[in-house]
Amino acid sequence: MTVTAESRTVELDPRRNVPGTRPGFSSTLRAEWIKFWSVRSTMWSTVMLFVLGAGLTALICATNAEWLASSEADESPGSFITFGLTFAQITAIVLGTLTVTSEYGTGMIRATLAATPRRGAVLAAKALVLTGTLFVAGTVTAFAGYFAGNFFLDREGIGLALSDDGVLRSMFGSGLYMTGLGLLAAGVGILVRHTAAALSMVLALVFVAGNMAFLLPGTWGEWVAKLMPGNAGSPVAVPVPFNPEALTPWTGFAAFGAEVLVLLVIGWMVFQRRDA
C-alpha cells in the first residue's frame, strides 16, 4: 500500500495512481496472452492439435505408402501428406471457442471488461492471440506431418519435395486455415456465449453442412456449396484438392477470410452494445 495516512481528513488524489496516457493495446494483448496460456485447456488443446495433425499424417502415410506406390493406386500422395490436419482443425475450433465462451461461462467477462472497458481492444487482443498461436501451431504441425509422412513415402520412391506444386503452400496454408477456423469459432462464441452451443454449431457448419451443401441443386446450390466456410477455406491447406468442384486455394481462402471477417465484425458490434 502506498497510502499510510491515518487521519480521517486525508485528501486522497483520486487520480494519483492513474497514468496520463492509456496503458495501450500492448497491455491488453499481454493480459490476454497470460489469460490464454494460464489455463490447462490451452496447453492440452495445442498438444492434441500437434499429436493429431502430425501423428495421424505419419500413420496414414506409413500404412498407405506401399499401396500408393503400386499401380492400383487411384489417389495422389499429395492427398495424404496433410491428412491429419483435418482432425487437428477440430482442436483449433475448440481453442477458438473456449477463448470467448469460457469467459461467459465463468462470469469472468465482467472482470475482463472492468479492467479494459474498450471492448474492441479486448476482442482484437483475443483475435491476435488466437492468430499467433494457431498460425504457428498449424504451420509447425503441418511441417512435422510432412517430414514424418514423407519419410514413409520416400521409402517407396513416391516422396514429395517441398518445391513440388502446392506442397509448401499447403504447409503455411494449414496454419492460415486453422487460424481462420479458430477466429470463426471465436466469432460464433461471441454471438452465442455458450461453449457447447458454439462448438456444435461450428463443427456442424464446417464438417457436416459443408459436405451436404454439394447436394443442393442448380447453379445457386453449387455456389452455396463452394462458399461454405469449410469448402472455401480448406483447399489452401492441401496440396491436391479433395473436391474438384471446390474453389482454387487462394480464391477460396479469400472468400473464407471475408466470411470470418464479416462474422467478427458482427460479433464486435453485438459485443459493443451488449450488457456484460
Binding site: R15, V39, R110, A114
Partner: peptide, 20 residues
C-alpha cells in the same frame, strides 16, 4: 485510462476461471 488504478471492484466471487 487505467480503470483498475482508479476503481477497484469486487463483483461476484464467481468472476473467475476455475482452472487458473
Amino acid at each position: 485510462p487505467a480503470p483498475l488504478r482508479e476503481v477497484g471492484a469486487l463483483l461476484e466471487a464467481k468472476a473467475l476461471h476455475p482452472g487458473r
